[in-house]
Amino acid sequence: MARAVPADPHDGEAVAKRIENRWALTMVGLVALLVAMVIFTGLHWATMPPSRVETINPSTLHVSGEFVESNLGSAVETDGSVTVRIVGQQYSFTPQCIVVPSRTPVTFRVTSADVIHGMLITGTNINSMVSPGYISTFKTRFEKPGDHLMPCHEFCGTGHEGMWANVKVVEPDAFARLVGPTRRASCDL
């Protein structure tokens, strides 16, 4: 640490500079360590910031394409994985209740029909913005069955406070029973 103002200013200045540089290097090292941790977890768990940029016309979601109402919710794919499609709009997510199987790869495809929304699933690290004009695609896996809340987390207008959805994670066999002939499922009443 620093000393009291030394007698010989030139000598003191050199000493001060040395200490200072040592601190600066230590701090740069500390920051480098943090970055290294981010990179390590990025490689080890294959985590990337969630963005796979893709555009879509928000005005015609309900008319054609994968976000028509009858195609929303959880879709069972041929490889056994599940694709969950959600539309956010003032002031609800459709489907309002999302059901997914546990221990199964799940891909979310979420978009907005009007303004910026956001979604998070409590008790998980699922967290995404939902923007008009873009599809948010992200992959996850739920380990344990259970109920979660899914609030809209970005201000989307007066009424935002009422925009809450639910996520139910169920055992894979229970999920299989919910899936109808169209291979789509949701827990909307």
């Binding site: 796979r52 893709e54 028509v68 495809r109």
Partner: peptide
């Protein structure tokens, strides 16, 4: 760059009723 990320997925289910 905007791309299509869906990969292999089942075709969209259309509504049996008029929407």
């Amino acid at each position: 760059v905007p791309r299509s990320w869906l990969g292999e997925a089942s075709a969209p289910v259309t509504s049996p009723v008029k929407v």
